[in-house]
Design a protein around this nucleic acid. Structure first.
Lengths: 208, 208
DNA sequence: CATTAAACTGACCAGCAGTCCAGTTGCTGC
DNA sequence: GCAGCAACTGGACTGCTGGTCAGTTTAATG
């Protein structure tokens, strides 16, 4: 898997063709029955090309997820409130969770693709969660920690994110019931971070 | 996969040998690298026997999970409070969540085994969640609904259960950090179901 | 247009879940 | 006790998968 320098014209074309192919296949088939051969054929390239570019099945899925998550990443870093900086943590958190639910809802297969990729390739030691998960997790934990530094916000963030990995919930999302999940997460967060929870308006978070 | 009538002596012996084998393999290896061939060899039987008894890889995993979950199932149906009937819903819910976290913690691979089995074998329509998940989900939703019938407790139960399916959380559990998860779930539930939440002591839940 | 490194390809490999059936074995009625 | 049979057993076999590689093509550069 070549480093991300400038891609040759044909390479770039094939790269996007492959991502588009996965995207489409994921919309109509369950991830488990999408073979790399099928992806390659759909994209109109040889199978070797897939592995030359993405290294592995997980690499391909990861690339797709990163592409889809890119906009949201920009929005929380630089965008306008309440998603971006400026709004109070609780509002930002609620906005972020809504955005994630929305993102996942609109892309049925997105997290189904992410799921396997977040798991172990083999049984090496500590395992690295992939960048998208890390970013989302850090964002949630950070915001929650500003309002409730007394909680284990690290674990809390994992719990909240877990909901978009669960099969039954992904099914519900596929059925268009994203609103229900959004509402439930909202209820949870508002119950946990009541309106004036922060001890200081200008939050001074403690980093343990 | 034969119906669950009385098993012949040798069949019963092989059945438990196979379950023990999976159990042990799951303790030392990642689920993805446990082949049915390996399971059969470890148990000292032929591969055909595995499929004759359990039908499929998922069937085998499911059987193991059911065995492990059996005691808990009995405890919530007939056992003493707070796990069993008799205690107020909130206390039962907290006790149940602790028990689940405990169960999963003590069996690293248990939910890792359950994970794939809960997913789609192919892309048939509605998909059946397996019995253990259904039971757990129904229990949580029922208890929560008694205290807060205004909430979408069905979705809430999915969200709470999702935490024991998440890879990062399973890792944490494997590292012995079950207490952290237990605490976090506790915080969530107590925030959501405050002490005297139920409008009626004898709850009358609404089934949508 | 010549050169070169990058990119492409599809035959190939090892390993997997699941099938199949010929041979074996525990059970049951007599 | 034993005969007969259904249930059980095992391991060779199949079809498919993710991943590899040596040989070929092609975009970029001066």
């Amino acid at each position: 898997m070549p480093r991300s320098g400038r891609l040759r014209a044909d390479a770039a074309r094939n790269r996007t063709a492959l991502l588009r192919a996965v995207e489409e296949l994921l919309a109509h088939h369950h991830p488990a029955q999408i073979s790399m051969d099928l992806v390659a054929t759909t994209a109109g390239v040889g199978k070797g090309t897939v592995f030359h570019r993405f290294g592995s099945r997980d690499g391909l899925m990861l690339a797709l997820v990163q592409e889809r998550a890119h906009d949201l990443g920009v929005a929380i870093a630089d965008g306008p409130p309440p998603l971006g900086p400026g709004a109070p943590p609780r509002a930002r958190l609620l906005a972020f969770l809504s955005a994630v639910v929305d993102l996942v809802s609109r892309n049925k297969g997105l997290l189904a693709a992410l799921g396997p990729a977040i798991a172990a390739p083999s049984d090496q030691g500590p395992r690295e969660a992939h960048p998208v998960y890390r970013t989302w997790h850090g964002h949630i934990a950070g915001l929650a920690g500003q309002e409730r530094p007394d909680l284990d916000t690290d674990m809390l963030a994992h719990v909240l994110l877990a909901s978009v990995h669960s099969e039954p919930i992904l099914e519900a999302l596929a059925r268009g019931e994203g609103e229900r999940l959004d509402r439930t997460l909202r209820d949870l967060v508002t119950a946990l971070l009541p309106d004036g929870a922060a001890s200081h308006t200008k939050a001074e978070s403690r980093h343990p």
